[in-house]
Nucleic acid binder design. Sequence first.
DNA 1: GCAAAAGTGTTTGGGATACACCCATGC
DNA 2: GCATGGGTGTATCCCAAACACTTTTGC
Lengths: 224, 224
Amino acid sequence: MYETEYVPPTVTVDGVIFQIIDGVLYVALIKRSAEPFKDSWALPGGYNAAGETTLEALERIVKRKAGISIKKQTKFAEQLFTFDTVARDPRGHAVSVTYMACGLDISPQNSSEQTQFFPVDNLPKLAYDHKDIITYAHERLISKLSYTNVVYSLLPEKFTMTALQTAYEAVFQRELDKRNFRKKFAQLDLIKETDEMFKEGAHRPARLYTFKQNTLQTLVRSFD
Amino acid sequence: MYETEYVPPTVTVDGVIFQIIDGVLYVALIKRSAEPFKDSWALPGGYNAAGETTLEALERIVKRKAGISIKKQTKFAEQLFTFDTVARDPRGHAVSVTYMACGLDISPQNSSEQTQFFPVDNLPKLAYDHKDIITYAHERLISKLSYTNVVYSLLPEKFTMTALQTAYEAVFQRELDKRNFRKKFAQLDLIKETDEMFKEGAHRPARLYTFKQNTLQTLVRSFD
DNA sequence: GCAAAAGTGTTTGGGATACACCCATGC
DNA sequence: GCATGGGTGTATCCCAAACACTTTTGC
C-alpha cells in the first residue's frame, strides 16, 4: 500500500581523501564550477545511480571530478556516516553516504574540476556541511590510528621510525615522545626491520621498516 | 549531463532494538508476512520516502510494523552503517541505512506484524543479511558501553549496582568482578546515590542509584 | 539460624609517562 | 669538528586484575 506510492530520496556520495605531506595532514577539495555553491571549495562527491554500490559511485565520481582513483591511489577506504539532514541539492531531499580514504603521493590526473589538497587545520570556507564531514572523518582517523594498524595506508612500503612517528603526530596534531613511541610500537609487533637504510643529509642514516600486514587489523592493546 | 539521466537506488531503513530482560540482551524481530522471505524473522524496516529523514522513516516503520516507538520507548538511538551490497528487494538495487536503539520494558503495541524479542546469542534464522547487521550492532554496543555512559539507556531511572553490573555482563556476555566493577564505576563519577533502597526477597536491601546525566557522554577513561 | 544477595580493601604486576645523552654521517 | 637527525634505558606512578569475608534481611 505505502510501497506503491513510494518516491525515494536522492542518494549521493562524498569522499574525504587524506594524505600526509611534509608532516602535515591534508585533505582533497575541488572548486565547484556550478551552482549551488559555485566557486566554493567542497569535497568531491555526486549522485549515486541505481545498480552501482556507494563505493563504486565514489570511485567513478572522484576519478572524474578530482582526478583521483580511490582504488589505485589510496590504500584504505571506509564508510563513515550517512548524512540525511542537509538538502544538498535545492531540488529536493538527498542523503549523502560519506567515505574516508588514505594514501600518499596522491596527485590528481585529468580532473574535470580544479583539485587541491588543503591542511586539515587550515581549510577554506566549504560548501554544504562539508566542514562537519571532514571533522567527523578526522576524528574517525584519530580513533582508528589508536586501535588499528591503519597508519600503513599513510606511509610508503618502506619507512623510517621517524616517518612513522610523524604520521601519528600529523593525525593526532600533537607531539609524541620518541622513546616511548618506539617502545610502544615494538610491543605491538606490527612492523619488521629491513636490511636497508635511508640516507639523507648530514646525519646518521635511518633504518627502514615494513609492515608485516598491509591490511586493516585491530590491535590487541590500543595505542594512546 | 549525468544528473539529468540519474535514477537513484531505493533507500530503506532497518532498526536493531535492544533491551535487557532478566540479565540477557534481547533484540526485536518481526515475522515477515509477505515475500520475499515470507515467514522468516527479520529486523523491522522498510522504505524511506523523500521528505523524511532516515530516523523519521525508522520511527514510522517500526511503529507500524513492530508496534514500538523508537522516540517514546527507547532512550537512545544511533545510526550504524549503510549496507549497499545486498539487493533487499528483488525488484532492484537498495541501500539500507541501519540504526540501533536501546530501551527497557519495551512491549510492542498494535503492530501490523508478529513481533517478538529474541536473545542475541540465540537468534532464529534471519532474512536478508540481518544476522550481519545484528552482529555489527552488538559489537558497536559493546564498544559504546566501554567508552560512553550509554548503559543508562538500558536501565530504569533508579537502579541497583547489581543491575548496573548485570547490564554490562549481558552486553559483554561475560562475568565481571563485583569489587573491581564498583571501584571503577565510582571513579567514573557518572552516578549518584539516592536515599532509597530496593527490597526484594530474603536478603539485604540494595541501595538505588541514578545517573547524573541521561544523555550520551564520552568517558575520560574508557571502561574495560 | 540459615539462605541469599549486598557491600567492602588490599596486594601485585604491567603499562604509561617523564626524562637526557651518545651515535653515525656529510660537509 | 660541528651540525643534524638517529637511536637507546630507567625510575615512577597509576590503573587493572586477582581475590574472600562480613552485613542485612526474610523466613
